[in-house]
Simulated assay, not measured.
Amino acid sequence: MTEPECLFCKIVAGDVPSTPVYENGTVYAFRDINPQARVHVLVVSRQHYEDAGALAGDDPALLADLVLAGVEVARQEGIERSGYRMVFNTGEDAGRTVFHAHLHVLGGEGLGLFGRVG
């Protein structure tokens, strides 16, 4: 299932260019065009789900595939030992801008702590 107007569905289909990092039959990982760390890769499911909650409720095995792909991305990028962060943003307050479940893999430098802005 895909959504014709979804940016990430278009990227997965190859209609919008991206820089691939990893892929398999269920997920596609590519470099973020606005990186927030030296390594910033997005891992998306090939099927469209609006957010991580919808994905977890509908297909927990696919959610696990995203996380396992994130671990593989960290290994490939050479950040598995130094540390990395995996993040799902859900909802307006989290800053989500694309409504297709996706996992951010960030690392390659000190990331600081989570917390409030300002």
Results as ranks from 00 to 15, higher is better:
E3A: 14
E77R: 08
F88W: 10
L66K: 02
A52K: 01
Y49A: 07
Y28I: 04
Q76I: 13
V67R: 08
M86G: 07
Y84K: 01
G91Y: 10
I79D: 08
I79Y: 10
T26F: 13
G53L: 11
V105F: 05
A69R: 00
V117S: 14
V117N: 14
L62P: 05
G53V: 08
V21G: 02
M1D: 13
L111T: 03
L66I: 06
G110Q: 13
V98M: 03
A56Q: 13
L66D: 03
A37D: 01
V117R: 14
R31D: 09
E50H: 12
Y49L: 06
I79G: 05
N34W: 09
S45L: 02
E92N: 12
E5A: 15
G107S: 08
I79P: 07
V41M: 02
E92S: 13
G108L: 09
I33G: 05
I33T: 08
G83S: 10
G107W: 10
C9Y: 03
G115M: 12
D59N: 15
N24G: 10
L68H: 15
R85D: 09
S45D: 06
V12L: 04
G95K: 03
P17T: 11
H102N: 04
Q36Y: 07
E109D: 11
E50P: 04
E80Q: 15
L63I: 02
P35N: 00
D59K: 10
D65C: 14
I11A: 00
Q76P: 08
H40G: 04
P17E: 13
V43Q: 03
D65M: 10
D59A: 14
Q76E: 12
Y22C: 10
L42N: 00
V67G: 07
V105G: 01
A64Y: 07
L42W: 00
G83M: 05
R75D: 12
G25A: 15
G78F: 09
F88S: 02
A13Q: 11
A61N: 12
D32E: 02
G110R: 12
P17I: 09
D58L: 12
V73D: 03
D51E: 00
G118A: 14
G107R: 06
H48I: 00
E92R: 15
F88K: 04
G107M: 09
C9H: 00
E80I: 13
V44N: 05
N34T: 11
D51M: 02
A54F: 10
V105S: 03
L42Q: 00
V67E: 08
L106T: 06
F99Y: 14
G14Y: 07
T19H: 12
T2M: 11
G110Y: 11
V39Y: 04
T19D: 11
L113T: 14
F88E: 05
H102Q: 06
L7N: 03
G112H: 03
L106C: 08
L42K: 00
F88T: 01
